Amino acid sequence: MKYYRYTDLVWLNRCLYTLLFPPAVLTIIGLLHGLYSLQRLRGQSSLAALDSLSPDLSQMLMLDGILRVSQISLTILMLTFFAFCWLYYAKRNLIALFQQVEHCLINNLKQFANLFISIFFSLRMMRELWRTSIPKNHRHGIQHWLVPVWWVILIAANTCKVVAVVLLARAYTVGEWFNGYEWMLAAYCFYFPLYILTWRLVNQLARYQKIQWQQLMTQSA
């Protein structure tokens, strides 16, 4: 019978970094360009229609839109990989460490189903993953704050993003665009620390799981 085997998360972390770096860069560019755009539009009447703006201002807003859509799209791609690939292997490693479960199609589907359901309780899932991955002899001085802070920033960033997208899609005047874009700037401010905390979280979990696997192999030898 073939059982689940431990997978070193280092190679998945490299893939995640490849997906995480571009939106992080776009977040900085989008934030700086957004602040510049707000400054440029401050001289305009809040009731002025966006269609009546000068060509250079219209081009500036179009560039803001391209940066915004690119950052959101790449972030969704990164989070999808994190949720349905990285987390799958991280949770599967716990099975390899603590259980003997047959590696077959049915059990793979069960793991994906459990992962999908757990996403609706993401804070509980991540706390359980964090707690279980830490070896018993490494539980002193661990960063208990990392997962809840990561989760709060994730929720805040996505909430600001959704509000910004809705408001900007309905914006016809400069004032309405201001209101929507302030939400997008808030999303940018939340997303950048989110990327940093995500990278820190995945590296810590990969390290802890590898320590547990090495200890298991030493005990089995």
Rank of each mutant, 00 (worst) to 15 (best):
residue 1 M to W: 14
residue 3 Y to S: 12
residue 4 Y to H: 13
residue 6 Y to C: 08
residue 7 T to K: 15
residue 14 R to K: 15
residue 14 R to N: 13
residue 18 T to G: 15
residue 19 L to R: 04
residue 20 L to D: 03
residue 22 P to T: 07
residue 22 P to C: 06
residue 24 A to D: 05
residue 25 V to F: 11
residue 28 I to K: 04
residue 30 G to R: 02
residue 32 L to F: 13
residue 33 H to C: 10
residue 33 H to R: 12
residue 34 G to P: 07
residue 40 R to Y: 08
residue 43 G to K: 06
residue 44 Q to L: 03
residue 45 S to I: 04
residue 45 S to M: 05
residue 47 L to Y: 12
residue 49 A to Y: 07
residue 49 A to P: 02
residue 51 D to I: 06
residue 54 S to N: 07
residue 55 P to C: 08
residue 56 D to F: 07
residue 57 L to Y: 06
residue 59 Q to T: 14
residue 60 M to S: 12
residue 61 L to M: 02
residue 65 G to S: 08
residue 68 R to Y: 08
residue 69 V to W: 07
residue 69 V to S: 09
residue 70 S to R: 06
residue 70 S to M: 10
residue 74 L to G: 02
residue 76 I to V: 13
residue 76 I to A: 10
residue 78 M to Q: 08
residue 81 F to C: 06
residue 81 F to V: 05
residue 85 C to R: 12
residue 87 L to C: 09
residue 89 Y to S: 07
residue 92 R to S: 15
residue 94 L to K: 09
residue 99 Q to V: 14
residue 100 Q to L: 10
residue 101 V to P: 03
residue 105 L to I: 07
residue 107 N to G: 04
residue 110 K to V: 13
residue 112 F to H: 14
residue 120 F to T: 03
residue 120 F to C: 01
residue 126 M to P: 00
residue 130 W to C: 02
residue 132 T to Y: 10
residue 132 T to E: 14
residue 132 T to I: 11
residue 133 S to V: 06
residue 135 P to N: 11
residue 136 K to R: 11
residue 137 N to F: 12
residue 139 R to W: 04
residue 140 H to F: 05
residue 146 L to H: 01
residue 147 V to T: 01
residue 147 V to P: 00
residue 148 P to D: 01
residue 151 W to Q: 02
residue 153 I to K: 00
residue 154 L to F: 02
residue 161 K to W: 01
residue 163 V to P: 00
residue 166 V to D: 08
residue 168 L to F: 00
residue 168 L to P: 00
residue 174 V to Q: 08
residue 180 G to F: 04
residue 181 Y to F: 14
residue 183 W to H: 04
residue 184 M to T: 02
residue 185 L to D: 02
residue 187 A to S: 12
residue 187 A to D: 00
residue 189 C to Q: 05
residue 189 C to G: 06
residue 190 F to P: 01
residue 191 Y to I: 05
residue 192 F to E: 04
residue 194 L to K: 06
residue 201 L to R: 03
residue 202 V to N: 01
residue 203 N to L: 05
residue 204 Q to R: 10
residue 206 A to P: 05
residue 206 A to D: 01
residue 212 Q to I: 09
residue 213 W to I: 05
residue 214 Q to W: 13
